[in-house]
Structure formats: structure tokens, C-alpha cells
Design a protein around this nucleic acid. Structure first.
Lengths: 170, 170
DNA sequence: TTGTTTAGTTGTCAATGGCAACTATCTTGG
DNA sequence: CCAAGATAGTTGCCATTGACAACTAAACAA
């Protein structure tokens, strides 16, 4: 069916991508976690604020989809963040079951500081690249994200939903 | 200390890298988790097997360092994996406190299947790139990992800080 | 109006992860 | 050799993450 000649090189690149991506993820994940903790946020809280700030506000269900978490987990996350004064919410007039969740000033401040710290790190990381190489790196990451989003879903309902929401958020 | 002219361009690229990396991490993380679960492993178990197989065996402390987990967590992970027949361990003759932990045949099998599944995914992802672009993507990822590893390690200071901050957080 | 669907919450369970306190085994300075 | 310290792992306790199921309340549809 498919060429017997194709594989070897592709196989090797696929393996290299796996190893590189794994390492990348682990490094950045831990780095981001350290940064978040230093600024008094957990990783999930930072993601939540990211989503709230870039979208201007979300329902709990929308948030759960964007975070790819269960509604129940999301509900508890928001409850914790409300207690810590990181988010605020109100009942939209047109649907009194729903919550409209937004970042509080304090949440905005903390996320802003966190983001700036990470950006400083990234700038240091990129500083010695020539700009075209920098942009190449970024656009390749974007491309991989794009492909992975479109392609490899062995779609649980959750993932399908998540994709839909994420797409319309951007 | 550094130039005031510190280019706007760099700022922008740093921000772009942040967004792209964040998206990349989230996508791959969830994809890997789905894959792992489908093959009867958790993410941590998959990483553990990866480390054990590529190193040929580890002490618990070494594993904890590689996984960046606390010894206690690692101990419990290994205990679970032992019960599930994914790893085996022995007491090295020269130190009867220590554990030498290795992957069991079953662990090897499952990890192998998981890895092959992910590689198939990656191959599909890369298939339509021309090989030089593929390799560029990979080497950029590697380079970023390399830089992040060499650079931003202030691990003890970072963790200490993080701990302190977390503690004083109400 | 009466189902039905939708938005969130709560109960329960398991896994993840950290810190502190503990046991058992080396290792070293006298 | 031996007491003191360092190391390797384990366990107790706690908080968070995460899923699933059962639930309440509000909105919607026939």
C-alpha cells in the first residue's frame, strides 16, 4: 500500500521529535510551575487567569472546556480562586444559573507579574538567536500545535468539545 | 545592566514563544496522557519506564531526581508499579538500604507499545514536512531544551523561594 | 404545563505531590 | 572499634488535581 522506502528517515525523525518534545515539555512545565509558585499561583490558576484575561470572561462550562477539565474540578478550582481573591463572578441577567467569571484586580496583577517573569526568561533564552531563527522556531512550534490540534484526536467527547471552544476563543 | 535599546522585537518574540510553548505543552501533554491511559499506564508511569529503560536501572533517589519528584512520591509510584508488575527491584549487594529498580518485561512491553503509538502519531504529523524542515524543527526544540537546561537552572534557590512563598500564602 | 436540557455543585474515589518524621544502613572521625 | 552523622527509603499527613455520578436550580420546548 504505502511505499516501503518512506519510513526509515521519517521513523527516525518521529523518534527524535518524541524525545525532544518530551524533554521540552518537562523542562518548561517545571519552569512554569516554579514561576507560578513564586508568584503565588498554581499552574492551573495561572492557566485559568490566562484564559479569563485573554477572553475577557468565561462561564464555568466554557472554562472547563478550555482547561480540558471536568466541570466539577473547574468548579472547585474557581471556588478556591474566589476565596483567594483571584477571580470574581456574577450571574448574567439572561441566565441566572450561569456564572460569568472574570479575573479580579489581584488576579490580574499576579498573572501580569508571572507573565512578565516568564517573558524575561524567554527573552534571555532567545536573545542570542538571530531574529529570523527565533521566528522560525516559533512558527514551527505553532505549526506543530496546529497540526496536532487538527489531526491526532482520537476524540473523546471532551476533546472534541475542547477543540471547538478553543478555536472559537482565538 | 543591559542595553536600554533591548529590542521590542525580542520582547515580541519572547511573548510569541510563551504563547506557542504554552499551547504546545498543553496539546502534547493531553495527547500523551490519552495515549498512556489507552495503554494502561499513567503519565508518571510512562516517564518512569522511559527513564528506567534508557538508563538500564535506577535507584529510587536517582529516579526521583530524574522525575523531579519528591522521594516520597517516587517511593509510592514505584510501590504502585511494583504491585502492577511494571517494575522489579533488588537490593544491590554493596548497599542493602538501596533499591535497584528496573522495568519488568510487562513494563517494557507496555512502554514499547505506547512509544510506538506516539511515534506513529508523530510520523503522521511530520510526514508532509520536507525532511530538512523536520530536522530543523527538531533541532530547534533540542536547542531550546539545551538552553533552558543550562540557563535557567537556579533549582535550589528557585525551589526554596517557591516553598517560602507558598507557605506564607494564606 | 410538564418534560427535557443545561449550568453548576457536591460526594466519593484515586492519583499526584510536598514536607516532616521515622527506620535501617552505611561511613567517618576519634 | 564505635559513636555521630550522612544516606536510602518508607510512612503519616495534608492539599490539589482529576474523573464520574448524583444532585439542584433554572431555562427551554412541546
Amino acid at each position: 500500500m504505502v511505499s516501503r522506502i518512506r519510513p526509515l528517515l521519517l521513523q527516525r525523525d518521529a523518534a527524535d521529535l518524541y524525545d525532544a518534545a518530551t524533554a521540552f515539555i518537562r523542562i518548561y512545565q517545571f519552569r512554569n510551575r516554579d514561576h507560578a509558585l513564586r508568584h503565588g499561583l498554581t499552574v492551573v490558576q495561572a492557566y485559568t487567569l490566562d484564559i479569563l484575561l485573554s477572553s475577557g470572561g468565561q462561564s464555568l462550562t466554557g472554562l472547563a472546556l478550555a482547561l480540558r477539565l471536568d466541570k466539577s474540578t473547574t468548579s472547585r478550582v474557581i471556588s478556591g480562586m474566589t476565596q483567594h481573591g483571584l477571580v470574581e463572578w456574577s450571574r448574567p441577567a439572561h441566565d441566572r444559573r450561569a456564572k460569568l467569571i472574570v479575573a479580579s484586580p489581584e488576579g490580574r496583577r499576579r498573572y501580569g507579574r508571572l507573565r512578565r517573569a516568564i517573558l524575561r526568561d524567554n527573552a534571555r533564552l532567545l536573545a542570542t538567536y538571530p531574529p529570523p531563527a527565533r521566528q522560525a522556531a516559533i512558527s514551527i512550534l505553532r505549526e506543530l500545535v496546529h497540526r496536532a490540534t487538527g489531526a491526532s484526536r482520537a476524540p473523546s467527547a471532551a476533546s472534541r468539545e475542547a477543540r471547538r471552544t478553543r478555536t472559537q476563543r482565538s
